[in-house]
Design a protein around this nucleic acid. Structure first.
Lengths: 205, 205, 205, 205
DNA sequence: GATGAATGAGCCTTCATTCAT
DNA sequence: TATGAATGAAGGCTCATTCAT
């Protein structure tokens, strides 16, 4: 895998995950990780540069979600409008199922990102997710000739607000350590609720 | 103010706020705070017991919101059902305006709570807020003889999910340092959006 | 009582005893004592000058033993030689019973002295006890016209050694927190053993 | 030496010994030791883990005495009874000479143990020494068919008392910083005195 | 006389990082 | 490349003591 360091010792990343998950970024200790993984502290530096590098490596799998989201939305919006509307519900359902699968396939990475990150790393990530979503939501509103948009009752800022709220809620699955199954139900309910909200704004009359 | 330590030196709490806001709980240094406030480090301990005590003091004003929320909702629901429905929109608008006023009147406290807390302090707080909200939402649903509730399409868990999402979103004002004005608009939009979602569930047919 | 500070608050000395007993001199904290006794730390200074003064006050009752020992031995040796020998066993038994009573009547003071003292306080005390004992032992040896003493097989140094060993052993009662009863038996055995040793040296032929 | 840390800097242990000897465990400061030894404070932790580890290292040589005592007594008692009695005096003399040599060969370690230990370290050590001694004393009493033992005038408890008193006295050499020569005489006298005491109890009629 | 508050000194400990081997 | 050792910086915290009120 291109993203991975060759010859990487799986033991180290396991220990690092454990330490960061248990203590959070700041309180995690490289020495503990190294000791637990039975390597020298210095090795950590050879491998990852420094503490932040180590952490960045651990959360690097979360890039996948950004890529997927962009691709999925692009694909959806490359269809003609009729096809879009026809497949709206179905696409959404499948899409978010895929998203949750992606998250749970690399759960520790997302957990670290959401609950154990230093500074604004999670917030920046959330912003990236939201930005992608907003971009296509606006596209959809325009293609739908949304009356609310035309009349200025809503605008990009509004979309951003709602989208941020939604994805924050989505990541609460991770924050609260829901099981994959729980998370599925949670997201379904949430989408339902949001769907009703949005439907109002997509109307063109 | 009852909540305040008598004779308290305002300079210390200003410096403490600054340090915690800039660096977060873990990276904040009592020594720095003391140095900046031009007092001895020991004084911090005389005043607040320890680091956590200092932080707890700083966020103690956030209790106000919990009290207000409980009281406001209790008052609203102590009216008869007709009055409730008549004043729904108006009460909500005024209520959330008051909430945002409370938050912005002690902005640093809420900012610390939301963005700079150690461990699960913010999450616990959010849970408290949500619990109050859910309690009265369920009451309202029952009083409204909600069909969705009767048919089991929604339950307490669903309310909890939606409420958590809403208040998380609300605190994003603080997370993103919106101005009071921005926040006002943001919350209004959010309430609008959520209002549409909920209206579906309040129907009794 | 001459030895006591007038108007003294019994509560303070109880708490002080507890703290010193539990933590030893160095680790004991005046603030803890004050807090526990519900007085200000400063009061401790008004009463006792400083930490060492406080401790000295607590162990001051141990002076009694020195006084008693001196007086008892003096009285014994003020009798004529025949009376001395006649009452040797009886006097010894009664004397050490009285000594143990004195110790156990002020147990905390002796416990503090033996087990919780800073620096050489206990050792100095032990030296004082031993010095008294040695003084009279030598007197007894001379009066008995001890052959061993005359021939130089034993001397003051020897007496000092044996006496130190004996009183160290005596204070082991306190070190090991024996009950008064246990201590009584222990001392009796010890005196028996030492009595046999000494009897050899008291012979004048 | 197996017991030693390889490549160890003699300077550090010298300074550590000095500090602990002068101030006792609690008041000794790792910072002072480090400064005196011209290394960083952190180095102390690299070498010894923590303050207690450092101290334990310094007193670790005192294990030798326990080993020697056990071995010497075992060897003595593996001889037949006649040989034991024949060599009693000679063996004892040589044995305690060896013991004092062992102590004085690592004098600082024993001084730290006896005079500068935290908590019950010395007392625990003394108990170990005594336990070994008592074990073999009882063996000797049984082999000698001691009348006193048979008649219950003495028992294990008595042996423990006397043995504790003896070894406490022995360590007073260290407590009082006697020279090797002084200590030699002191112990000889002490053994003499105790020998007379014991002789009474070893009789089988 | 009592006290609340302040404080300078000092403690043990941990950390991320560097560097010679 | 791997590492053991070293380290400067910093951390939270406690203490005995003083002093103005």
């Amino acid at each position: 895998m291109a993203n991975r360091i060759e010859g990487y010792d799986e033991r180290i990343i396991e220990c690092a995950q454990k330490e960061f998950l248990e203590k959070g970024y700041n309180d995690a200790s490289l020495r503990n990780i190294a000791k637990e993984a039975d390597v020298s502290t210095s090795t950590m530096y050879t491998r990852f540069g420094d503490k932040e590098g180590m952490f960045q490596y651990l959360i690097s799998p979360t890039e996948e979600l950004l890529v997927f989201l962009e691709k999925a939305l692009e694909k959806y919006f490359s269809m003609n409008v009729d096809a879009q509307q026809e497949q709206y519900e179905e696409s959404g359902e499948a899409g978010f199922d895929a998203i949750m699968d992606i998250i749970y396939a690399n759960y520790p990475a997302y957990k670290l990102l959401v609950s154990c990150s230093p500074g604004d790393i999670y917030m920046d990530y959330l912003e990236k997710v939201t930005a992608i979503d907003v971009k296509y939501t606006l596209l959809f509103l325009k293609e739908s000739d949304s009356l609310a948009l035309r009349e200025g009752r809503i605008n990009e800022g509004f979309c951003h607000v709602v989208s941020t709220a939604f994805y924050s809620a989505l990541f609460h699955c991770v924050e609260h350590d829901m099981s994959r199954e729980e998370a599925g139900k949670y997201i379904k309910e949430l989408r339902n609720f949001y769907g009703r909200g949005w439907s109002e704004y997509f109307k063109n009359t």
